[in-house]
């Protein structure tokens, strides 16, 4: 199910952003794709280091509160950059994306991930982790990894569909 009407995608492709992305391949590749992929790597790193710490797999000598706090700062920067570069890239091929099932799967996963992080995960992890049931921490870590792996996987899938 599409979240936005086709008319919006037609407008996006004919907009200034769409024109720049379609006309100048170098700008699309550098400002769009490379920034998007580097940001995805930073976001993935922030998610994995924080969630692996909650699972007790890495950085066990560092308090999980510290890891979660530091990782969240980088997560926010990466998320902002991913969305900005993603909008630029999407504008260039907007109509094609409207008919792409992988694109909509990615959008749903991204919305679920953002809502999960800012409405559930962050409020939960803001306090003292020793006061939280360890199984809840582990469950949240697994769900977080799954949702962001789904965002990355469906995102790459767009390029192959």
């Amino acid at each position: 199910m599409e979240l936005l009407p086709l008319g919006f995608f037609e407008w996006a492709e004919s907009s200034f952003l769409g024109y720049i992305g379609k006309t100048y391949g170098g700008i699309y590749a550098t400002l769009g794709q490379s920034v998007h992929l580097i940001s995805l790597a930073v976001l993935g790193g922030a998610v994995l280091v924080s969630d692996f710490r909650l699972l007790g797999w890495v950085l066990r000598d560092v308090p999980s509160e510290v890891v979660a706090e530091q990782a969240h700062k980088w997560f926010k920067i990466a998320l902002f950059t991913i969305i900005a570069s993603g909008v630029f890239m999407a504008a260039a091929i907007a109509i094609k994306l409207y008919y792409n099932a992988a694109y909509w799967a990615k959008m749903y996963a991204l919305i679920a991930g953002v809502l999960f992080v800012f409405l559930v995960r962050r409020p939960l992890l803001r306090g003292d982790h020793s006061q939280i049931n360890p199984w809840v921490l582990k469950l949240v870590a697994v769900a977080s990894i799954l949702v962001w792996v789904s965002v990355a996987a469906t995102g790459r899938w767009i390029g192959f569909s």
Partner: peptide
């Protein structure tokens, strides 16, 4: 120990995400 409200919300949303991921 009883789960707090935020813990219950975290469990419910995590189970939903994991379930939806498995189905998808």
């Amino acid at each position: 120990a009883k789960l707090s409200t935020i813990e219950k919300i975290a469990v419910a949303s995590s189970v939903f995400i994991i379930g939806a991921g498995i189905v998808y």
